[in-house]
């Protein structure tokens, strides 16, 4: 369970996250939506350790994890994907997956000189696991392609696949659907549901596609102007007046009001 308490992240005078508080329950697929500039990605970046918070706390199963670097959070089972795919371009798709498992014996340089057989055995295991993941994601045919050469949607799948190389507790998915075609998006959605059911992954998903959110997520949290605006099922938030207002733009609404009072 992730608890975010009164989190702030400011850039100079700009308050990207401005007192957000929310809870992501273990075992849920929580949706995070909101208009552009609502602070969703910044919130992800703070939770996942990319940016330190200006103030406030992030708790993971009761432990304060605010400000820990990403690689430490990874070891605690907190993983993320990126809005713009961050693949390792010079490596093959399979290598992209094989680099993920933590504390590989082969990652110690002296083992590459003095413990070759142990490393080879471990590599075999990891390779097998990578192939299983590729199979699960239905992209086995891409295994030996350079990761920079595959399509944007396939890169998103690859990023999801990387989280499957370990036993993650919670995975933050930043706009998995951006630039992905409908068929591939369904594949991604199926994979998320299966991972949630079969392996007990908790997900937090940022997505603009409301159909996708409605199909996967419960609850859905709505952010606007750096804060949490509403929380509920997809249907509830869709009909929430404040949410509609936020999407329409508060500025516009205010102008309408002003015009009315002056008139």
């Amino acid at each position: 369970m992730i608890v975010v308490e009164d989190l702030h992240r400011h850039f100079g005078g700009f308050r990207a996250v401005d007192g957000a508080s929310l809870t992501i329950k273990t075992g849920s697929i929580t949706g995070l939506i909101g208009p552009n500039g609502a602070g969703k990605t910044t919130l992800f970046n703070v939770i996942a350790g990319r940016l330190p918070p200006t103030s406030g706390r992030v708790l993971m199963d009761g432990e304060d994890i605010s400000g820990l670097p990403p690689h430490v959070l990874f070891h605690k089972g907190l993983l993320r994907t990126f809005q713009i795919a961050h693949e390792f371009g010079s490596m093959t798709v399979r290598e992209n997956l094989m680099m993920v498992p933590p504390d590989q014996a082969g990652e110690r340089i002296w083992n590459s000189w003095f413990a070759r057989s142990r490393v080879a055995a471990e590599e075999k295991r990891i390779r097998q696991k990578a192939d299983e993941v590729l199979d699960f994601l239905t992209i086995s045919h891409l295994a030996d392609q350079k990761a920079s050469m595959i399509s944007g949607g396939q890169k998103k799948l690859l990023e999801l696949g990387r989280t499957m190389m370990v036993d993650a507790k919670i995975v933050f998915l930043d706009e998995v659907g951006a630039g992905v075609n409908r068929t591939l998006l369904n594949t991604i959605g199926d994979a998320i549901i299966r991972l949630n059911k079969e392996r007990g992954y908790t997900f937090c998903v940022i997505e603009h596609d409301m159909d996708f959110i409605a199909r996967l997520c419960d609850p859905v949290i709505v952010m606007a102007e750096g804060r949490v605006l509403a929380e509920g099922t997809a249907d509830e938030v869709k009909n929430n007046e404040r949410v509609i207002e936020a999407y329409l733009g508060t500025g516009l609404k205010n102008k309408v009001k002003e015009a009315a009072s002056h008139g």
Binding site: A48, H71, L79, F82, H86, F88, M91, M98, A105
Partner: peptide, 19 residues
């Protein structure tokens, strides 16, 4: 070796390697 693979990953994309 896997060490070299990790180093290449870091060089390709530090942010992603840290994640």
């Amino acid at each position: 070796s896997p060490w070299g693979r990790m180093m290449r990953a870091i060089r390709d994309n530090e942010v992603s390697a840290a994640a």
